[in-house]
Computed example of a mutant assay.
Amino acid sequence: MENEKLTITWFEKTAHKITLAAVANEVVDEAQQELFDKVLRRFPADKIKHIDVRELKMPQPMVQILVQLENLNADELLYIYHKKVPVYLLSELKKRA
């Protein structure tokens, strides 16, 4: 898995909107991994929700992610296993902002 491409995407939720905080697409370098790890450390393990949408057919990944994001509390993090950057999700979140 060392040479496998990795996509890291995370979102910040405030009282009024959900925004894209960062995306690292391609091979993640040490600085990007460190930043991602820093974000993860802000949340205790019981406040990190994991979902895996890699095997779902379109548009189910986006649907499942939106449902989870709508129910996400401000003190929680949604950790998504996805096989690519969720481009359509990003545009949908912009519409909702």
Results as ranks from 00 to 15, higher is better:
96 R>S: 11
26 E>K: 12
1 M>A: 11
55 E>P: 02
59 P>H: 04
36 F>R: 01
76 E>D: 13
24 A>E: 03
76 E>L: 13
54 R>E: 08
87 V>H: 12
47 K>Q: 14
74 A>K: 12
38 K>C: 05
53 V>E: 02
96 R>H: 11
48 I>M: 13
47 K>D: 07
16 H>D: 11
19 T>W: 00
68 Q>R: 15
32 Q>E: 10
85 V>P: 01
21 A>N: 13
38 K>E: 09
36 F>K: 01
14 T>Q: 04
87 V>L: 14
83 K>S: 12
93 L>C: 11
2 E>H: 08
3 N>R: 10
24 A>S: 12
84 K>P: 03
47 K>I: 11
58 M>V: 09
87 V>K: 15
70 E>L: 08
66 L>Q: 07
36 F>S: 01
83 K>M: 11
79 Y>N: 14
92 E>L: 11
83 K>H: 15
10 W>T: 04
72 L>T: 06
97 A>Y: 08
24 A>K: 02
61 P>D: 03
62 M>S: 05
6 L>I: 13
56 L>E: 07
15 A>S: 11
85 V>C: 04
38 K>I: 00
84 K>T: 14
63 V>N: 12
92 E>C: 04
50 H>M: 08
12 E>I: 09
77 L>V: 06
49 K>V: 14
51 I>K: 05
47 K>G: 01
35 L>H: 05
92 E>N: 10
90 L>Y: 06
55 E>T: 11
68 Q>W: 11
13 K>G: 01
39 V>L: 10
89 L>E: 01
95 K>P: 00
3 N>C: 09
81 Y>R: 15
28 V>S: 02
94 K>E: 15
81 Y>C: 05
61 P>M: 10
75 D>L: 12
77 L>M: 15
39 V>M: 11
71 N>P: 04
5 K>H: 13
50 H>Y: 15
2 E>R: 11
21 A>L: 05
51 I>G: 03
82 H>Q: 13
4 E>F: 10
67 V>L: 12
30 E>Y: 09
45 A>G: 03
58 M>R: 09
34 E>A: 15
35 L>C: 04
26 E>S: 14
32 Q>A: 09
47 K>T: 08
60 Q>I: 09
61 P>V: 08
19 T>N: 10
24 A>V: 04
71 N>Y: 09
73 N>F: 12
83 K>T: 12
47 K>P: 07
4 E>T: 13
44 P>M: 13
48 I>E: 09
37 D>L: 01
63 V>C: 05
53 V>H: 03
3 N>D: 12
35 L>N: 02
35 L>K: 02
81 Y>E: 15
17 K>Y: 07
44 P>F: 08
36 F>M: 05
52 D>M: 06
59 P>R: 09
93 L>P: 03
21 A>H: 14
83 K>D: 15
28 V>Y: 02
91 S>N: 11
52 D>S: 08
57 K>A: 08
59 P>C: 07
24 A>L: 06
3 N>Q: 11
40 L>A: 05
17 K>W: 02
23 V>K: 10
38 K>F: 07
58 M>S: 10
7 T>M: 01
39 V>C: 04
40 L>M: 15
84 K>I: 07
96 R>E: 12
37 D>P: 00
86 P>G: 05
29 D>Q: 04
72 L>S: 00
63 V>R: 13
16 H>R: 10
10 W>F: 13
90 L>P: 02
44 P>N: 10
12 E>W: 04
69 L>C: 09
50 H>G: 03
14 T>R: 03
26 E>H: 13
34 E>G: 03
89 L>R: 01
87 V>R: 14
